[in-house]
Design a protein around this nucleic acid. Sequence first.
RNA 1: GAGGGCGUAGCUCAGUCGGUAGAGCAACGGACUUUUAAUCCGUUGGUCCUGGGUUCGAGUCCCAGCGCCCUCACCA
Length: 559
Amino acid sequence: MNQPNPADHSGLTEDQLKDPRVARRDKLRRLREAGIDPWGSRFDNRWSIGDARQLAGQIRYRTTAGEEFPLPTILPDTDLRAWRNELGPGEEIGPTVRVAGRVMLLRDKGKLVFITLRDWTGEIQLFIGKNQVGEENFELTKLIDLGDLIGVDGRLGRTNTGELTVFAEKLHFLTKMLEPAPDKHAGMTDPELRQRMRYADLAFNDGVMEIFLQRTEIVRSVRRTLDRDGYCEVEGPTLHAIAGGAAARPFVTHHNALDRQLFMRIALELHLKRLLVGGIERVYELGRVYRNEGISPRHNPEFTMLEAYQAYGDYRTMMDLTERIVTDAITAIGCGFVRNFNGHEIDFTPPFSRRTYAELFREATGVDAADDEAVIRLAKEMSLETAGKHPDVIRNEIFEQRVEDSLVGPIFVIDYPASICPLTKRKADNPAIAERFELFVGGMELANAYTELNDPDLQETLFETQLAGMAEEDSMAKMDHDFVRALRYGMPPAGGLGIGIDRLVMILTGQRSIRDIVLFPVLRPEASESPAADSATAAQPSPPGTSTTGGSADSEGSK
RNA sequence: GAGGGCGUAGCUCAGUCGGUAGAGCAACGGACUUUUAAUCCGUUGGUCCUGGGUUCGAGUCCCAGCGCCCUCACCA
């Protein structure tokens, strides 16, 4: 007890060194004393571990007589030692590679150390023998902890058990990890820690990297599909004077020089449609929108949305496009058209089924959706609030309760009640029905699209009706005079589409929680962070028309 | 915002009926040149989320608070 540690001259006692952080700091110091930069430097001519593994087929066993043999097929219990003994003495000849990565496992056998090294393409075992790398270089292994970043030069080969291995000839120290490593088997399981410290989650938990790389593949594929169709990607403003285009509470912010309130956008729609007026005939934006709403396994306050608009198309045009975007993305990540999600088996083989809202309504309730009295009667049976509500709103509440959650899909629900669709063109032969579809998968709304309303006078009327006549939480829009003016300049008939990219990623990667497919989901500040940021937010005034107007008793600000 | 669950060592988790805080991994000392969640010998490590209360005695029971997870609501 309290004896100086014989392995160094730091003056630290053994007791102090039993703290993993102290021990790591001490190894940092010892690296420096040995003349090694613990933070490394440029490391060129590296093979990714995935690429290095591809070279396994080149490994040969060469006998002392000079005969070369390819290795046998490697099965889990392959005993290469027996195979080599039959061939007689010799050595394994494999390509020389340089790899680098994070130390995931370390098995110290005295004069021989095995390391499992990981980079973002995979894992590979390192064999570091004292006789092979030399005594001085081997001393480095005593300063390596789990989680450190190292590199090696060596030859690819296989151990007696058949494990593909880099037999190190030279070991390089690249970066010290100063924090203790998570459990080497279980990793980090606390969801809060995983999200707060996504770096550690990515580095140490199996499968996390793959999910986020798949997300990237999906987003790339979505862009590729649209670009191939001749769409033009644009970047609209994220700061809006009026946060329109969807029914959601916006985040409020303030521009100092203009001394004006601004809102973070809740949708991309109204600016993209202005661009249709301007003549950009196929336009999309794939970007972040912000909604000041609750957080749940399917909701993050900021999320990624795709909106695409095609001049001279309609909602059927967008249905075909939606199907292509989704199936192309599935092909891109190679996961197959039949996916399991949340206990459902979902078959994405096109074409997706297409059913009208009215059909599904009748099947689920036995009531004709067009029969207002019957709908209201049903709503009362379901003890839904009906007073002062538009029949379409009531209709939709029933639909959401009775139909939506059970839609495993993928299924296009088409032709919605008109008055819950204030930005949508009505059917030519039936003004009570809007040309709109939503795509449902696994009980979630994945896409929403319509034939765009381009009649400026009707648009203005619908905005006004929404604002004046309805409880605030049912309102779909705020009056945007410039948008209406834009429509007066002539927006071509068009189809428009919105896809929730996060949900698409959830379904295609099989993740039940949006927090597992968003790199840095919104979290409460850590205890150590300043509480000042919190109180500043709380002190901000509510946006007009979002929490104090109308007769809305639904006051979320009351918490 | 409402209801339910959880919070114990750096990590993953036990902790019985209320009776002096436990394991594995990691860390530290040692052995081992084909291991692979390496193994073996030895050692250390605790604000039991926070604050009250009940009790001779609280990780355990009660109350309040904080955080996370799940369900619901708002919403995509």
